[in-house]
């Protein structure tokens, strides 16, 4: 991978379907299934992901709270590497996406660029995996792979805010809904698509995370969703891992499987639930999927 990215002769070899891929820390650890399913889907769709050589921390979630310079300089280093490689930079993690895209946006301002130093003038576009797949929806053969599955698409905060770096409307985004519809699932209209899941508070204030995530899950259950689809490892952790501790004084028990959109896409592309690591979640999605004949 490293050699590929560095070899100048390779720079133009990949064409439009080649991207530098920035996995980020979560996809290498707690959200491995997201990384694995994303790679499987992309391979199947003819999208080449070349892992960015020597990538480092994007700065989430503390850099921008502590240092203006580091908040740009940390993702700036990765942007610089991506610009060297010459391909658009794609990431599947909403937090990494937000940090990288904001850094790219802010370095358009010369003053910030001077502060952050290491960022080159020509920055490659930063994209979220959802955008990449959405731009290829036309080439994705519509199928009935997930027919009957009711999905509540959860976008969280960082994909749609702030406006300058958002991939879709902040109030009623549609990009994941479109994908779900294309692969035969039924995206449910619901009101909590972009509500706060509790974000980075699971260790400091798990009570807040549980309260906020509980509301989201209750709302998904209320519209009859079989599962919640996410595009962010943080959302997934909060909605999935903390589900066991929800309920009680916050209201009724709730059991809604939370899966990555790439896992659903993978199912429709013919991968098995085990290849997609659907068995790695705390709330087992397999019963819900098998009841629809999907697993």
């Amino acid at each position: 991978m490293k050699q590929e990215a560095r070899a100048p002769s390779e720079k133009r070899g990949g064409g439009q379907n080649t991207f530098s891929y920035y996995p980020g820390c979560a996809l290498k650890s707690s959200a491995r299934e997201y990384d694995i399913s994303a790679r499987l889907c992309c391979e199947s769709l003819g999208i080449e992901l070349r892992e960015l050589a020597d990538w480092t921390c994007c700065g989430a979630s503390s850099a921008h709270a502590t240092s203006d310079v580091l908040a740009v300089a940390l993702p700036g280093k990765d942007l610089h590497a991506a610009s060297e490689a010459g391909y658009p930079l794609v990431t599947a993690c909403a937090m990494c996406f937000s940090r990288l895209k904001i850094a790219a946006h802010e370095t358009a301002d010369m003053a910030t660029r001077t502060l952050a130093g290491d960022v080159s003038g020509n920055i490659v576009p930063v994209m979220h995996l959802l955008e990449v797949i959405d731009s290829r929806l036309a080439s994705l053969v519509p199928n009935k792979g997930l027919a009957g599955l009711k999905v509540a698409c959860f976008y969280g905060c960082l994909l749609v805010r702030p406006k300058a770096v958002a991939i879709d409307d902040a109030e009623n985004p549609q990009v994941m809904d479109r994908l779900m519809r294309t692969i035969g699932a039924e995206p449910m209209p619901w009101a909590f698509k972009t509500e706060c899941c509790g974000a980075g508070l699971p260790l400091a204030r798990p009570d807040i995370v549980r309260r906020l995530s509980h509301r989201i899950l209750l709302s998904a259950a209320a519209v009859g969703a079989d599962c919640v689809a996410v595009a962010c490892p943080e959302c997934h952790a909060n909605l999935d891992m903390h589900q066991a501790g929800m309920g009680g004084k916050h209201g009724g028990e709730v059991r809604v499987p939370v899966v990555y959109f790439t896992q659903l896409l993978g199912l429709s592309l013919g991968f098995s639930p085990y290849e997609l690591h659907l068995d790695r979640h705390m709330v087992d999605p397999l019963p819900a999927l098998s009841s629809k004949g999907l697993a």
């Binding site: 409307d169 902040a170 109030e171 009623n172 985004p173 209209p189 009101a191």
Partner: peptide, 9 residues
């Protein structure tokens, strides 16, 4: 146009 108000739904 107002998704936060239900977009007419």
């Amino acid at each position: 146009a107002y998704g936060e108000y239900g977009a007419g739904a």
